[in-house]
Amino acid sequence: MSKISRKVEDINASSMADISFLLLIFFLVTTSMNTSMGLQRRLPEPLPPDHQPQDVDIKKRNLFVVKINSLNQLLVQGEEGWDIRDLKEKAKEFILNERNESHLPEKVLREFETLGPMEFTRDHVISVQNDVDTQYQAYIDVQNELIAAYNELRNELAQAKFGKLYDELEEQQQKDIRTVFPQNISEAEPKNYGGVR
């Protein structure tokens, strides 16, 4: 009676390859490989609308001004003709103030949990000012060099104190190093271009 074979026939799987090829090609077309990379910055908080912009009193020695004009030329601390390649060293010298010179930012002594007592330039500010016609690439170059200066200083301090790179440190150690070298890059209020604020 039950002579009919119960065995299920093999499903033909040869089209499986085609189906998966199709899926593969679909994903290749609709997705993109590039991972977004960029420079992280934080904007200052907005001023209240009734607030008059007032010049914050920053001592001249604590201020490092980088201006970029419409021809992408640099004006660093009032000196013309700076090359972007030299900006990082100049910025490092300013932030660090190794020999405690009087024209570089003042140093403050503070006791840190992980670093011990450290003298650092707490109140220094780097101000980047640009023209309306400055090229975006030039602006990014300047930002990049300034961030590079901070990153190098942080890594140097981390190497000297802990023998590791900044990224490999523990959280408290990173926090203390960040306090010593905060990224005080001020993106100044745009100046009064053409009279409209």
Binding site: M37, G38, Q40, L43, E45, N130, Y136
Partner: peptide, 28 residues
């Protein structure tokens, strides 16, 4: 784009400040 003039970028930055979107990232 790398050839953009900074005027438009500054305008965007001011608008973002007013909208309280302070964490920004310049893609590069």
């Amino acid at each position: 784009d790398k050839d953009t003039r900074m005027g438009i970028i500054s305008d965007i930055k001011q608008a973002l400040r007013r909208a309280y979107a302070l964490k920004i990232n310049y893609q590069a």
